[in-house]
């Protein structure tokens, strides 16, 4: 037994190590997602019998004006969320100074990161409230009337994204502070000897060293943008009249309130496909240097 183990442990040990995590992940996450894709080919009210409809759900999606709105909003989310990494980096550069009390201030900057999205959503509804909100107070101090952002079909998504950016920027800030903590003094010194400062220094010396951190920041930002469900649910419920709905929320709404689980699953699948494009690019970029390094 023990010789068997010794002869084979080079592959058995890693297999044993990876099994629990991989199995659990496969059963709960992968299988569940696959099931949802399967459901998207059925007409199903979530309770009774499923009826095979082939691609009918997808065909309906194409004609659904709400779907187009959701899709557009998802793109707005993704695009605007891309502000989080640069803003986080800017804040990190600001805070990366050996000044007394800086540690405490850094911690305070992180706080939005740990708040529940229910909390963030509630707070920002107060900010935007057209009668007693912070925004209307500011506008009225200039003698102007604040726009009711959450009631305006053109602005509402932007307003929700701004709220969602608050914790997201904090997240990126944390990551970049960690990255700045670990820059190579040698390279910076060499850069300074060469007379690099300001932008050229940042772009040619610092950013390349922050590549890995930026990568993680990008990943959590995209995840954040696509997990936009909570903020939409808390702040607008997708309204007014569906104009701030995103795919994740529409899927939820269709499944839960309209009993259209097959249709909801089709929306989820579309979201998944969009995601898959990003995942493929991400993994490709992430794994490339390692493959080349071998």
């Amino acid at each position: 037994m023990s010789t068997f183990w010794r002869n084979h442990r080079h592959w058995m040990a890693p297999t044993l190590f990876i099994m629990p995590g991989a199995l659990l992940f496969a059963v709960v996450i992968i299988l569940a997602s696959a099931q949802t894709i399967w459901v998207s080919f059925f007409d199903w009210d979530g309770v009774g019998a499923k009826q095979w409809v082939g691609l009918a759900n997808y065909a309906q999606l194409l004609d659904d004006p709400q779907f187009h709105v959701s899709l557009k909003n998802n793109l707005i989310w993704l695009a605007m969320f891309m502000l989080a990494p640069p803003l986080g980096l800017a804040l990190a550069l600001l805070l990366n100074q050996p000044i007394r009390g800086m540690r405490v201030m850094k911690s305070l900057f992180f706080v939005p990161l740990v708040l529940a999205s229910v909390t963030v959503g509630v707070v920002f509804t107060w900010v935007y409230d057209p009668t007693f909100g912070l925004l209307s107070l500011i506008f009225s101090s200039f003698g102007a009337t604040a726009p009711a952002l959450l009631s305006d079909e053109h602005f509402v998504t932007f307003a929700v994204v701004v709220a969602a950016l608050w914790p997201q920027v904090a997240f990126c800030l944390v990551l970049f502070l960690a990255g700045l903590n670990n820059l190579s003094e040698d390279l910076i010194g060499a850069g300074r000897v060469d007379g690099a400062r300001g932008w050229p220094m940042l772009i040619h010396v610092i950013l390349p060293q922050l590549r890995e951190v930026s990568f993680i920041a990008l990943a959590v930002t995209v995840i954040g943008a696509l997990r936009s469900f909570d903020m939409v649910a808390v702040m607008t419920s997708g309204g007014p009249f569906g104009s701030s709905t995103v795919l994740a929320y529409q899927m939820y709404e269709q499944s839960i309130f309209s009993y259209r689980f097959g249709y909801g699953a089709a929306i989820a699948t579309v979201l998944f496909v969009i995601m898959a494009v990003f995942i493929a690019w991400y993994l490709h970029t992430l794994l490339k240097p390692e493959r080349e390094g071998v």
Binding site: E153, P240, F241, E253, F257, Y259, R260
Partner: peptide, 17 residues
């Protein structure tokens, strides 16, 4: 029907605006 209601409520909300 609940499915109809969801669309209807949304429609009336939009009409008022």
């Amino acid at each position: 029907d609940p499915d109809m209601a969801q669309e209807g409520l949304k429609g009336f909300q939009e009409f008022m605006a």
